[in-house]
Each structure stands twice: as C-alpha cells, then as structure tokens.
Amino acid sequence: MSLIELHTRSLELAAELIDTVQPEQLVLPTPCADWSLRRLMEHVVGQHRGFAAAARGAGPDRALWRDAPVGADPGGAFRGSAAELTAAFTAAAGTPGRSRLWLPEIRDGGPFPLDLAVGFHLLDTLVHAWDVAAALGPSSAAGIAAAVEAEPPLAGALLAVAEVVPAAPADRGPGRAFAPGRAPATAAGSFGRALALLGRDPDWAPPAR
C-alpha cells in the first residue's frame, strides 16, 4: 500500500472508534494534559483542516489550523474533515509543484515534502485515536492498539515516523506536542513502541475525583 493509502486506513480506524463517542462523553479527561475529549476532538478536526489547506498550497498561516467545533456529533465532524483531507492529499500527490507543504505548527514550518507531511498526520491520527480510546476506557485503548497491530504495514509506518520525531529535551515536555520518551513494555509491538517513543503512558487512567 502507498503511504497515502495507509494514511486513509488510519483515518478509517480512528473514525470507527470516534463514531462510538456519545455527546455526554465529550467531558471526559484524556491523556493530553488539561484537554477534555471535546477539546481533543476540536484539535483533531482543526488539524485535518490545516493539513488539507497545506496540501492545497496554503502558506504558513496559523489561522488555518485553529481548533474546529464538533458540536454533538464528533464522528460526523471527524469523517467530514477527514474526507476533505484525503481528497487534498490525493490531489497534491498528482499535482506537479505541490509536493512541499507548509506546516506552521511543526518546528520552523517547513516546507516539508508531501510524504513526510502525510506521515506526520498518520502518526497524529493514530496517537490521538489512542488518546480518545484511553479516555473511553482500557478496553477501547486495547482495541485500537490491537486493530493497528493487526495491520503490520500500518503499524510499521507509524513506528517509522515515531522514530524520527525529535526527542531532544527542548522538543519534549509541557507546551510541546509530545512528552519525553518512555521505555516500552517488554512485549510491546510496533504500536506500543511508537506510543512509548512519543511519551504516552499505556497505563494512563483519568485522575481520581
């Protein structure tokens, strides 16, 4: 499968999970510090739109990346913006001269090669899908991990991108996209190792009230 096809598959797996989110669950805490499930979903949909704008040739305009409301239908908001992004990536791949994308929220903004931008978003999609699943409960988190591991090309693509995410102290921690890396569990597969590299705690649980 091509990287764009693997990216599309990552969106499909995430959408299947997000379709199960009920409006009353949008207040749940997530592994993303201080972000409710609603806040996380607004970020995700905003990222879809930002990456789509970049693929259509937009410059480094941060306003294009702002969070987007999801209302009471996070699944619908996710699927609609994901379809827009898939179409934009596919069109960019077939358009000479549109192979470098400005991504103002990543390091110096780029421009980045299309394949690298697609890989960045594949990683973002699957890691945030795990964040959503963790908010819903341990069985959901285990389910998304198992679904990714069941597709070795997808799990391998995720791990390959995670391995090149900058991990210097200045690149990780509060206010950054990822926490410092963790040692993976002994039996962790590609998905588990990717989460560990990005600082996610596989045993995360919501704070006690």
Rank of each mutant, 00 (worst) to 15 (best):
I4A: 15
E5C: 04
R9T: 12
S10H: 00
L13A: 01
I18F: 02
I18A: 06
Q25K: 12
L26R: 11
R38W: 10
E42Q: 14
V44M: 15
V45K: 11
Q47Y: 13
H48D: 13
H48K: 08
R49W: 07
A52K: 03
A53I: 00
A58E: 08
D61S: 01
R62A: 14
R62K: 12
D67E: 14
A68F: 12
P69M: 00
V70F: 01
A72M: 11
D73L: 04
P74I: 07
P74L: 02
G75D: 04
G75W: 00
F78G: 03
R79G: 06
S81I: 02
A91S: 14
A93Q: 14
P96D: 04
R98D: 09
R98S: 15
S99F: 03
S99K: 12
L101N: 06
L101R: 02
L101Y: 03
P104K: 01
G109P: 11
G109S: 08
L114F: 00
L116I: 13
A117L: 08
V118A: 12
V127Q: 11
A129M: 04
V132S: 05
L136A: 09
S139A: 15
S140E: 14
A147W: 07
V148K: 00
E151C: 02
E151V: 13
E151P: 00
L154V: 00
A157M: 00
L159A: 10
A160R: 12
A160L: 03
A162Y: 04
E163W: 02
V165H: 06
A168S: 10
P169A: 08
R172H: 06
G173C: 09
P174V: 09
A179E: 15
A179M: 14
G181V: 10
A183I: 11
A183V: 14
T186E: 15
A187M: 10
A188C: 06
A188I: 09
G192K: 07
A194F: 09
R200K: 13
P206A: 01
P206I: 05
P206G: 08
